[in-house]
Design a protein around this nucleic acid. Sequence first.
DNA 1: GCCAACGTTGGC
DNA 2: GCCAACGTTGGC
Length: 154
Amino acid sequence: MAKGHWLVKTEPEVYSIEDLQRDGTTVWDRVRNHQAKLSLREGMKPGDLALIYHSNADPTGVVGTATVVGEAMPDETQFRKGDEAFEPRATRTNPVWWARTLRFERRFKACVELGSLRAEPALAEMKLLARGNRLSVLPVTAAEFERILRMAKA
DNA sequence: GCCAACGTTGGC
DNA sequence: GCCAACGTTGGC
């Protein structure tokens, strides 16, 4: 089966591509949106590729790539009383939120900025660029993924 | 800091 | 089930 492609957003002040490069792998957790949760839990397959996107940043844009490792797991932060990510409805046997492990793949020499993405006709249909989009985990087509890799080299 | 867009909550 | 109020995301 063909590899899937994704884009995951992170605020670099919270967790950046540099942090991922340092850590090697990380658990992508604290996602609190049901559509994004479904992508984490069921959409992603081991070996899928993900673009790492810096939001609320300067500059904002795609800064590198990662690989999906293993299957989904319950997001541990939902069980932490007192944590802002705590989910009172969650139980161990019936978790509400899910997480995935991502492994650092590469860091682009330069950020492929949001403005460049918007200016690229081949990316006009990207879900990321859709008006009002706020999802932090999004599917990307193989063509979009490849195009952004090429833009990163330019 | 502002604000548009959208999701969630909760009263009814 | 409707919908107003509120909270969050995220670009600028």
